Computed example of a mutant assay.
Amino acid sequence: MSAKPATTPERPWFSSGPTAKRPGWTPQALSGAPVGRSNRSKVTVGRIRQALDMTREILGIPADYKVFMMPGSDTGAFEAAMWNLLGPRKVQLLAFENFGQLWADDATQHLKLDCEVLSAPYGQLPDLTQIDPTADLVFPWNGTTSGVKVPNADFLDGHQGLVLCDATSAAFCMDLPWDKLDVTTFSFQKALGGEAGIGVLVLSPKAIERLNTFDSGRPIPKVLRLKKKDAADPAIMGGDAINTFSFLVIEDYLDALRWGQREGGLDGLIGRCERNAQVLFDWIEQTEWVDFVAEVPETRSTTSVCLKFIDPAIRAQPADVQAKLAAKVGSLLELEGVAFDVTGYRAAPPGLRLWCGCTVEADDIEALLPWLEWAYAAAVEALKVEGVIA
């Protein structure tokens, strides 16, 4: 077995959600949280409004779009949009990774909509030329579990139906075309390394019009309900909490937003992300045993970078053996304390997944690369000794 690398990442957090906290974070960042206060008090309402205003400012969300928080993280925000808005038109859903498939399953099995699912295997995008501009469209901007993103927004030009975009692993790291998106969701714990449990929902005037004029007739749970007396609830649209939020979570989000402003706003955060990804991309191009799951370079995620094994001797092994190898690599890295939670998603091709979002440091990715080489070689050797690999 080769010697272990001498240098280790200072911050070994490469999980794809919750992601790494911003550099320099400590629990002291939460010391000003208004805990023990009513969520209707001036100070707590003020914290929510401040976070929403900073979100709008950093992301460049238009002034006539509504921005508010939802319980249940990104999942709760996206479910609320689907349950309240979908139904009057045919719906098309792009399913090219786990969460896109989740929304497709909800649309077909639970909401029972008139819908069409445009699917693609892990590593590919569906045929975007098959999108019907008159249909409502549901899709993830970036496939967190596949490492595949849409390359641009050209396929949304002239779209007449509502466009619902799950942007949870794209927000703050990729430039989103707000003029082409009617519903956009993300969560603190993915976008900026915040604590989990709250999602952000952004609605365009077109989406608000749909909310005001469409009644699905279906019962909607209170925590997903966006209407009051047959119209958009003005309190929720104004930023009020739909239920009681954790103000430790919101304080943490405010801390991350302030850091984002210090880093140069959206341009600075995207730049950090792209520098991180490029360090990893350069290594992948030079490494013989691993490759991107995303097959087309223009569709490769710069946040959740998903990798598959391409060593012919490993590719010849059954999928369960490749999965054991991935788990072994992840376990060795975690035991050494150099990288946590880098095994690929369970439904994806066996391999690794590393978060390169804006809260990660490029130097830490650089320091991790020799450890990936070491852990892969050590894992292959260990599985050979165990008789798992012949």
Rank of each mutant, 00 (worst) to 15 (best):
residue 6 A to D: 10
residue 10 E to S: 13
residue 11 R to G: 00
residue 11 R to F: 13
residue 18 P to D: 07
residue 19 T to H: 00
residue 23 P to M: 04
residue 23 P to A: 07
residue 26 T to A: 07
residue 28 Q to T: 11
residue 29 A to Q: 09
residue 35 V to H: 09
residue 35 V to Y: 11
residue 39 N to M: 13
residue 40 R to L: 15
residue 41 S to K: 10
residue 44 T to D: 09
residue 44 T to I: 03
residue 44 T to K: 08
residue 50 Q to W: 05
residue 52 L to E: 10
residue 58 I to W: 06
residue 59 L to T: 02
residue 68 F to G: 01
residue 70 M to N: 07
residue 77 A to N: 10
residue 78 F to S: 11
residue 78 F to C: 05
residue 79 E to P: 00
residue 80 A to F: 06
residue 89 R to H: 11
residue 95 A to P: 10
residue 95 A to L: 04
residue 102 L to S: 12
residue 103 W to I: 04
residue 105 D to R: 12
residue 110 H to N: 14
residue 112 K to C: 13
residue 117 V to E: 12
residue 121 P to N: 05
residue 121 P to W: 06
residue 128 L to Q: 05
residue 132 D to R: 03
residue 135 A to V: 03
residue 144 T to D: 09
residue 145 T to H: 15
residue 154 D to W: 05
residue 161 G to D: 02
residue 163 V to M: 08
residue 168 T to Q: 13
residue 170 A to M: 07
residue 176 L to S: 04
residue 182 D to S: 04
residue 193 G to I: 06
residue 196 A to E: 12
residue 196 A to R: 14
residue 206 K to N: 09
residue 208 I to V: 15
residue 211 L to I: 08
residue 213 T to Q: 08
residue 213 T to Y: 02
residue 214 F to W: 15
residue 218 R to H: 10
residue 241 A to Y: 01
residue 248 L to W: 08
residue 251 E to M: 08
residue 257 L to R: 02
residue 259 W to H: 11
residue 262 R to M: 12
residue 271 G to C: 01
residue 272 R to L: 11
residue 292 F to T: 06
residue 296 V to E: 15
residue 302 T to N: 14
residue 307 L to G: 00
residue 316 A to Y: 03
residue 321 V to H: 05
residue 327 A to M: 14
residue 338 V to D: 04
residue 342 V to K: 01
residue 345 Y to K: 10
residue 353 R to A: 06
residue 358 C to D: 00
residue 359 T to F: 01
residue 364 D to S: 02
residue 376 Y to P: 02
residue 390 A to D: 15
